[in-house]
């Protein structure tokens, strides 16, 4: 891999943890390294699949927390 960027930089880029200036340079670098662009695409696809799960909590759980807050607010006051 090009000494300018490491494999870990692919991850930093994908998770938007790269400063904008560096990300811009990285995008340009990717254009010159199609194999890395392909790897990036594969990693991105896997991340998107992972983000499918899971759903949120039940409404009952939310309501129980809110009820607890209201109840203890009276005690706290």
């Amino acid at each position: 891999m090009d000494p300018t960027f490491t494999p870990n930089d692919l991850i930093r880029f994908l998770f938007h943890e790269m400063p904008s200036e560096e990300a811009h340079a990285f995008r340009q670098w990717l254009q010159e390294h199609p194999a890395r662009q392909e790897e990036l695409n594969r990693l991105q696809q896997t991340i998107e699949e992972l983000r499918q799960v899971p759903d949120g909590p039940s409404e009952t759980s939310v309501q129980l927390v809110l009820a607890y807050s209201r109840q203890t607010a009276l005690e706290h006051a």
Partner: peptide
Amino acid sequence: GDEAALELLIRRHRQRVFG
């Protein structure tokens, strides 16, 4: 004392926390 603020906080972050 704004209970509605808590509800919004929970609803805003419930999926991440639960996940």
